[in-house]
Design a protein around this nucleic acid. Sequence first.
DNA 1: TACGGGAATATTTTT
DNA 2: TATTCCCGTA
Length: 664
Amino acid sequence: MKRFVLKKPVNERPDYTIPYEEKLNKSQLEVVMHNRGPALVIAGAGTGKTRTLVYRVARLVESGVDASGILLLTFTRRAAREMLDRASAILDERCRKVKGGTFHYYCSQLLHRYHQKIGYPKDFTIMDTSDSLEVIQLLRSELKVDKSSKRFPQKKTLLSIFSGSVNKQRSIHEIVDEEYDQFMSHINTIEKLWQAYRKYKEMHHVMDFDDLLVNTVELLHDKAVQQEVSSKHQYIMVDEYQDTNAIQAELVRLFSNTHSNVMVVGDDAQSIYAFRGADHKNIMRFPDLFPETKLIKLEENYRSTQRILDLANLLMEQAGEKYEKRLYTNREQGDLPALVKAADNREQSRFVSQMILNLREQGVELSDIAVLFRNGRDSFDLEIELNRAKVPFIKFGGQKFAEAAHIKDVLAHIRVLVNPGDAIAWNRILTLIDGVGPKTANDLVGWLQNAANPYEMGESGMISDRYKKGVYALSTLLTDLKKKDLTVPEAIGHIVKYYKPMCEKKFDDHPKRLKDLESFEAISGTYRDLPHLLEELALDPIEATAVDTMASQQDENPLTLSTIHSAKGLEWKHVFLIQCVDGVIPSGFSLNSQEELDEELRLLYVAVTRAADMLYICYPVLMHGNFGDAFTKLSRFLDGVGEENIEPWLLTSEEEELPKQIEG
DNA sequence: TACGGGAATATTTTT
DNA sequence: TATTCCCGTA
């Protein structure tokens, strides 16, 4: 029998293969079944936000929407990958075609595709933070800042002024006036430096993270491009919308200009990126941007026990700005969260490590446990303890793999191969050579920019005997790499071989660093080619500890250590929150206004709501600080919490600290 | 001009 | 604690 298959654009009443009504509650179903037009989903912590988005992707694909016409913007690329994996698992491989990633990643792709429209070469370089700092340093020394007068802001401070100005869409003058009052006397020099920095990036065809967003807005002012881009993706979803800033809101508007099919999802109580220009009021303003927005709220929590939610609700009551939501669940009461007072950092580490070993013995998977903290360094001591106890872990947040000096050195060689105009990278690899300092490097770079073949430096008349040999060696290496058609690991192998003696001279701890380079070579095969390797590493940096884990296959899923910021959107059965001390959370730098304190409070709220079954809040009484030891105070946010909401645990200080057993 | 050593200093969160 | 800055020497 012959059957006709109709190719309908969107099937309004298809027979779904997935039983959505059974899998979702009423509001979730409303989100999943939403078809066209703007929608705002306010979803409290643990209300199945990710799950709902995953089902919506599957539902759209199932009803005949072309998967490649769906754009899913998430906060990290990890989140996008995870969602698409899950969508593929519940439906089928069609979901893989959905376009997903961060704003920065998607913008980067657009800018590469339309590079000629903005006058950039195809393989322009993306600068990471340390590149930006290097450029600012360079420009600052060129400007010859008057050192005799009051101290000039450091490059780090300068960068945050610049970035703040871009992301908050305020002038440099306003930012300095409001946030860096002490540097107002230098305002003219700072503004001059800002101009120089922008000019430098343009001249050398490099973009920093902010430029990716700003230049995309610029690009989309071209009507033809805007038409093409916004019609390519007919369905747009934005996760974690509470952490977007004004530029990103503008981008959302531009992306969906022709169809307004945009659904944003977020929770204003979990906004924790104000320092990056994010404005949690952004999410409430979404209906202004898109009239006739449909509002849907997800309120039932499926993640945590009632006891954990009670604590979370109690914390939020302290906020200067009130949130309407109260989280509730149908889950069991559960155990009271624990408040663990340790003598000092060491004891805190030993408690956590010991407790984790106990849990593992009771059959809890390490991957169901996480340790969270405010600052990247808060886990250093614990990391030592975990290494000693041979507990495998992976750390999110803090220093990234590609930010370490030795990795940057190797990457700089790749960068000049990909973009010969990348002066920062040239500068870096030239100063590695014996006898070449900033001045010589700068001269050489100036010459290289106009050379027919920048990799053959031998022809330049500027080579003096002092560094002749070194420059020739570099020239040979680069010419070789350019000529031969090598795989990614082969190319890196060559560079590492060349770089090894320099690494040994430059760093005392070279054995560890050389081992890193080996691992890097080993995992580099996953990248398609060198340009992609650079782009991926810049926009989706590998966690420093992930390299070891990837290189040596573990037989056990690792424990998670994470900054609270990096833990956003995730959950674990058992969560330890360490260093819960006043000055750490809230941070000592955020005590000046109610807004700052509220943001810190939301941070603690995010940490608490990551826990599904059990939460342990730990703090050391004594901290080994910079100027000797100091007594600490428990975080002010927990001051008013009584024993009916959090149970103090006593550590028995025998030779081997045995933590109190969990009561059955 | 390069570079090492010692003094000074400021210290978050991420794409 | 780790990084940045400054200065003397080769």
